[in-house]
Design a protein around this nucleic acid. Structure first.
Length: 876
RNA sequence: GCCCGGGUGGCGGAAUGGCAGACGCUGAGGACUUAAAAUCCUCCGGGGAUUUUUCCUCAUGUGGGUUCGACUCCCACCCCGGGCACCA
């Protein structure tokens, strides 16, 4: 930003008045002026009103950290354009903003600077607020939310208690991901790149066993999957797919294998999607962390050899990315299990590729029909009996037992026909799966079952800057929920934050020591705080009723505003935030707070802003500060460029050179209107108001000159109404803001081409044209548009004005250019009055010298005619 | 490995079966100016023909296909980005 010191510098141009750009466009002055007017007129404040059509548009709430840069602004700019457009379209728009204000960075900063996390948070929120206001976004600031406000997080606690009552919150000891830098537990989803902390991408995550609080997201697995259907068409396909994969539904069967030879050991339960291949199982393989492993090794002849290997497997860090390529390793436990179908004894192994977290932590190995098992079997010399053959390859006979003459090399994993499978031989795979599962259930050693990859949501964090979990532990009464009337359980004001050892709350006696709500005796408070994804799982409901102190929100208000009509945010939240929000919504529905199934009807994921080919971020040091931007060019130029440089869903490469183009364009528009403002000021202009019905808005467009219009006037009116038609489309249906801006630029160029307008264009036509330019820009560059609107002689602010309706009669072309092709190649163009008949155009084409010589000596065998557009003559 | 995106001038991008490269940036030239900036105008994919006007031809990652006509639809492949991944 610094090296631009030519006198074309907009800052000089702006502050120096007419110098620099040669126009009086001074964004610093007009932007502040209009922001103040909007605030004074309370333009963006809205209330639930069932008599009005509502539109709830929401951008994901930011985590206020560091400097706000143009990467942040893209999200809000897109949202603001849509919000303002919908306002102009007469919708009652809810467009709120708030702060994801709890979280680790605040606490880490506090540790580093020996301050309180609140100070860091306050400072950052202050900066973010200032920048968002500086950009003129149309938020209803009365609804602002800070998630670290006790009046907000008390409802996190309230929800937690409700979930506890419903059995959706529970405590269990579990292996957790522990980040040594954060000194806290991470959710599985916060472990990225196969074993690294999501905040410290260079820090390997360890595992520890701790008592944790969980929310039972798995109880809703089927609904979370099923209701994705409701989102089709409204959410990006890939987000739906990512959610689907994350939930990971898998239909199969669980089967119990009895352990042979040793008494008192419970059977080993495996999960398989291919129970039909069970006659081909040549081993059971357990996860290294499977609870039965030690029991099996006890007294086993293989124990001495096995134990060191087991120890090694258990400690190997779980780097998932290596997992996929890692050599499959295993060892024999010295024990055998009985295949309940074949009664065969098969060896029990332990394998490093079997995951305790998925299924039952144990599998049956079927080397002939599974890739991994095949690989494993090859390495350790396990047999590979074939039990399924392709349907095309007719089974020789219902052979009983015995492997085929030659072992197969590759595993056959497709469906086919069962062979060598006892009474199930000869069945098609689908039938075999159904019959064998039924058989297992009938005999009591198994059943068909559906499992999910989705796991319960671990919400415990051993940190200070989050929502305290509202339970106490009493020696007499055990775990006791804090009664609603005692909420919120507030954070102690002066914690000792060291970043080491136990959690800060545990180290604060005045917080920990309390009395039992049941017996009044001494008790200890829970010292874990909640994952901040809890805060963001329902904040958009609070916006509908932000100051309610009786309930998280009023159901009637939520019913009016919900579902969110348009949610906008980064693809980075495609899984976690959205999945948790969907879960929360379903829980609230089951509690009777709301009636809908899904919180957001439409989701838009905008692309990232990059500089130098990488995503703009503070840590990469390639940010373009939003405030610097506003100071140099003004907010409107920043907004316009962000919209113009790329379509909103694609990544945007920031270019200091290109932005000059947006700045120049706005100046060009300003000069144009400045030049004609005086002459048109007294003329009657547009009258369409936001609250008017569509028919009146249409009439609001003056029909100034259908009689006696000059050629210039016709050209201008046609161009402006054609532009309006296409821009309206780009805004409403496609969100192609970049091409909408291109169209307005083209229009501006066309107006300039007709200068001097005084010569042959009456003031009322000039006014119509300039007003439409202004209105089309209004959602994108609202400050400039207000200023221009005022210059054009309007007393009422633009916020009272409706989006204009285009006039079909004015947009229609009188003369069109027909493209003439011969055999599909363009050979000429003919200008004709609109609506000219095909035959006529063919005649003209045949005598057109440029076209005629392509037809010479040939016969026209076919004609394709697109009225007012194209004629294709096929010749032979 | 599987699943999504995407590949168009020097650059960002436009064109949802009908003139490929709109619009903007960069660059070149011109006007204005004592000069510079700003502003305004013109040109700007490759090759070829032509004295100019102009005409032909190739070109949207590669190779096929459908069609009167393909950046657009279909098939195969290559490359780039993202997601998932011993999921039993």
């Amino acid at each position: 930003m610094a090296e631009q010191t030519t006198s074309g510098n907009p800052q000089q141009g702006a502050s120096g008045g007419a110098a620099g750009t040669g126009s009086g466009y001074d964004p610093q002055k007009i932007e502040l002026k209009w922001q103040k007017r909007w605030a004074d007129a309370r333009v963006f404040e809205s209330e639930a009103d069932p008599s009005k059509s509502k539109y709830y548009i929401l951008e994901m709430l930011p985590y206020p950290s560091g400097t706000m840069h143009m990467g942040h602004m893209r999200n809000y700019t897109i949202g603001d354009v849509v919000a303002r457009m919908k306002r102009m379209r007469g919708f009652n728009v809810l467009h709120p903003m708030g702060w994801d204000a709890f979280g680790l960075p605040a606490e880490n900063a506090a540790i580093k600077n020996k301050t309180h996390p609140r100070e860091w948070t306050n400072r950052n929120v202050g900066e973010f607020q200032r920048v968002l206001r500086r950009f003129g976004f149309s938020y209803d600031w009365r609804r602002e939310i800070w998630t670290c406000d006790p009046e907000y997080y008390r409802w996190n606690q309230w929800f937690f208690l409700r979930m506890l009552e419903r059995g959706l919150a529970y405590r269990k000891k579990s292996r957790v991901n522990w980040c040594p830098k954060c000194c806290t537990v991470l959710a599985n989803e916060q472990v990225i790149n196969g074993g690294y902390c999501w905040r410290h991408e260079d820090t390997l995550v360890e595992t520890r066993e701790i008592e944790q609080w969980f929310l039972k997201t798995t109880a809703y697995a089927e609904q979370l999957l099923d209701d994705l259907k409701e989102l089709e068409g409204g959410w990006p396909e890939r987000v739906i797919l990512m959610q689907k994969n994350w939930i990971g539904k898998s239909q199969g069967a669980k089967v119990k294998f009895a352990v042979a030879d040793i008494a008192g050991v419970e059977p080993i339960e495996i999960f398989t999607t291919r129970i039909d291949t069970i006659y081909g199982a040549t081993a059971l393989i357990l996860a290294p962390t499977h609870p039965l492993v030690s029991k099996l090794l006890e007294g086993s002849p293989e124990r001495a050899e096995a134990e060191p290997q087991l120890a090694k497997m258990r400690q190997t860090s779980v780097k998932t990315e290596d997992l996929a390529t890692m050599e499959k390793e295993g060892f024999f436990t010295g024990r055998y299990a009985t295949n309940p179908f074949s009664e065969e004894k098969i060896p029990i192994w332990v394998g490093n590729f079997v995951l305790m977290e998925y299924g039952t932590g144990a599998i049956m190995a079927v080397p002939a029909h599974d890739e991994r098992d095949s690989e494993f079997a090859a390495k350790y010399g396990l047999p590979k009996p074939v039990v399924v053959v392709p349907e095309t390859q007719a089974p020789p006979s219902k052979t009983e037992g015995g492997a085929p003459a030659h072992p197969i090399e590759a595993a056959f994993t497709e469906y086919g026909i069962s062979v060598n499978s006892g009474p199930f031989s000869g069945l098609k795979t689908e039938d075999a799966i159904a019959k064998m599962a039924a058989f297992a259930e009938q005999k009591g050693f198994g059943r068909a079952e559906t499992i999910y990859r989705l796991r319960d949501w671990g919400i415990s964090r051993q940190r200070y800057w989050g929502t305290p979990i509202p339970v106490v532990y009493c020696a007499k009464d055990g775990l006791v929920p804090v009664p609603d009337k005692d909420l919120p359980v507030v954070l102690p004001p002066n914690p000792k934050l060291t970043g080491e050892g136990e959690s800060p709350l545990a180290a604060t006696p005045e917080f920990v020591n309390t009395t039992c709500p049941k017996c009044g005796g001494p008790a200890r408070r829970e010292t874990d705080t909640m994952d901040t994804f809890v805060d963001s799982s329902w904040y958009f409901y609070r916006y509908t009723d932000p100051h309610n102190d009786k309930a998280p929100f009023d159901s009637a208000k939520a019913a009016y505003w919900f579902p969110i009509d348009q949610y906008i945010g980064g693809i980075t939240h495609a899984i976690l935030h959205l999945l948790y929000s969907r879960f929360w919504c379903k829980v609230m529905r089951d509690m009777g707070l709301i009636t809908h199934n899904e919180p957001a009807a439409r989701l838009f994921t905008q692309g990232m802003v990059q500089k130098g080919g990488v995503t703009m971020s503070k840590s990469r040091g390639n940010v373009v500060g939003a405030e610097d931007m506003a100071q140099k060019y003004g907010a409107d130029t920043g907004r316009l460029y962000t919209l113009f440089a790329a379509p909103p869903e694609k990544d945007l490469e920031w270019s200091e050179e290109s932005i000059e183009g947006s700045w120049r364009f706005l100046n060009r528009v300003y000069r144009l209107i400045e030049r004609h403002a005086e002459a048109v000021r007294g003329v009657k202009g547009r009258v369409g108001k936001i609250e008017d019905p569509p028919s009146k808005i249409e009439r609001g467009a003056p029909a100034p000159v259908s009689v006696g219009a000059t050629a210039k006037e016709k050209t201008l009116l046609r161009k402006v109404h054609q532009t309006l038609r296409r821009v309206t489309q780009d805004f409403e249906t496609r969100w192609h803001f970049n091409s909408a801006i291109a169209l307005i630029m083209e229009l501006t160029n066309a107006i300039y081409a007709q200068e001097p307008l005084e010569d042959g264009v009456r003031p009322e036509v000039r006014k119509e044209v300039l007003e439409l330019v202004t209105l089309m820009l209004a959602p994108m560059t609202p400050h400039l548009a207000e200023e221009l609107w005022e210059m054009l002689g309007h007393k009422d602010g633009l916020w009272t004005v409706a989006w204009p309706a285009f006039r079909e009669d004015l947009a229609r072309d009188e003369e069109v250019e027909i493209v003439v092709q011969v055999n599909g190649r363009v050979r000429g163009k003919i200008k004709v009055p609109a609506g000219t008949a095909e035959d006529e155009i063919v005649k003209m084409a045949q005598v057109d010298p440029g076209i005629a010589h392509h037809l010479a000596g040939k016969r026209i065998v076919k004609r394709i005619f697109v009225p007012d557009k194209l004629l294709n003559l096929v010749v032979a």
